[in-house]
Amino acid sequence: MMALVGVTLACGGMARAECAADAVTLKGDFGQARFHVSVADDAAERAQGLMNVEQMPTMTGMLFVYEAPQVASFWMRNTLIPLDMIFASADGVVQTVHAKAVPLDETPIFGGDAIKYVLEINGGLAGRLGIVPGAVMQHPAIGPDAALPCTN
């Protein structure tokens, strides 16, 4: 499945960094964290998401990419593991963090009105790392107008 990549906690500015299609970096007051990801960038992949996944290594996840900013609402139907959902705007700025979504719960989880990216990671990890609204997300899909652009 996905390999462990690791986390780097560091102080400092929002320097440009190398990007990879299979990695998302989040930076904020907490430092930075890098996740190895699968990307769901079409309707079928987004509909499947992490359903029926029984376990996920730490520092891995799934990045949902939408064609345009939109209202984002998720649920946990057929999702077997608790997840944190990190909702970001078109420039990659985190707008909402929903912690510890409950497995198999079909209650809608509202992420925001103008969301283009959603990163799902293991439940409770965002809180342990200190990821909060205002952090910035880096991935090649975010493009040249990203708050934290790629160097490549």
Rank of each mutant, 00 (worst) to 15 (best):
residue 1 M to L: 14
residue 71 V to A: 04
residue 25 T to F: 04
residue 17 A to C: 09
residue 72 A to G: 05
residue 76 M to Y: 10
residue 120 E to G: 04
residue 31 G to F: 09
residue 98 H to G: 01
residue 151 T to P: 08
residue 66 Y to A: 15
residue 138 Q to N: 14
residue 29 D to M: 07
residue 140 P to S: 15
residue 90 A to F: 06
residue 7 V to M: 09
residue 130 G to H: 10
residue 73 S to L: 04
residue 59 M to R: 11
residue 80 L to Q: 02
residue 89 S to T: 09
residue 88 A to Q: 03
residue 114 A to R: 02
residue 79 T to A: 00
residue 106 E to Q: 14
residue 75 W to P: 02
residue 130 G to V: 00
residue 41 D to I: 03
residue 57 P to C: 03
residue 108 P to T: 09
residue 71 V to G: 00
residue 119 L to Q: 04
residue 30 F to H: 10
residue 34 R to M: 08
residue 112 G to D: 05
residue 80 L to T: 03
residue 122 N to M: 08
residue 45 E to F: 08
residue 30 F to C: 11
residue 63 L to D: 05
residue 140 P to N: 12
residue 110 F to D: 11
residue 9 L to E: 13
residue 76 M to R: 10
residue 116 K to G: 07
residue 149 P to V: 11
residue 94 V to C: 05
residue 96 T to P: 03
residue 68 A to E: 15
residue 17 A to I: 06
residue 89 S to I: 01
residue 123 G to E: 07
residue 135 A to S: 12
residue 150 C to M: 13
residue 27 K to D: 04
residue 5 V to C: 13
residue 138 Q to M: 14
residue 97 V to L: 02
residue 22 D to P: 04
residue 49 G to R: 02
residue 113 D to F: 01
residue 136 V to A: 15
residue 42 D to R: 02
residue 22 D to F: 09
residue 128 R to P: 07
residue 67 E to W: 08
residue 20 A to Y: 09
residue 28 G to V: 01
residue 109 I to N: 01
residue 84 D to F: 03
residue 59 M to Q: 13
residue 46 R to D: 09
residue 80 L to R: 01
residue 64 F to Q: 03
residue 152 N to F: 12
residue 46 R to N: 06
residue 121 I to C: 14
residue 64 F to D: 00
residue 36 H to W: 08
residue 137 M to Q: 12
residue 15 A to K: 13
residue 71 V to Q: 07
residue 96 T to E: 06
residue 146 A to W: 05
residue 67 E to L: 13
residue 39 V to E: 02
residue 6 G to Q: 09
residue 82 P to M: 01
residue 127 G to Q: 04
residue 145 D to R: 10
residue 52 N to E: 15
residue 74 F to D: 03
residue 140 P to I: 11
residue 102 V to Q: 00
residue 4 L to M: 15
residue 39 V to D: 12
residue 100 K to T: 14
residue 15 A to N: 10
residue 139 H to I: 10
residue 90 A to H: 10
residue 54 E to S: 15
residue 84 D to T: 03
residue 48 Q to H: 13
residue 122 N to D: 02
residue 101 A to C: 08
residue 37 V to D: 07
residue 93 V to W: 04
residue 96 T to Q: 11
residue 94 V to Y: 00
residue 63 L to Y: 03
residue 51 M to T: 07
residue 144 P to K: 13
residue 135 A to V: 07
residue 113 D to K: 02
residue 31 G to W: 10
residue 115 I to D: 03
residue 139 H to M: 12
residue 92 G to M: 05
residue 141 A to K: 15
residue 72 A to E: 11
residue 108 P to K: 05
residue 86 I to F: 07
residue 113 D to S: 05
residue 2 M to K: 12
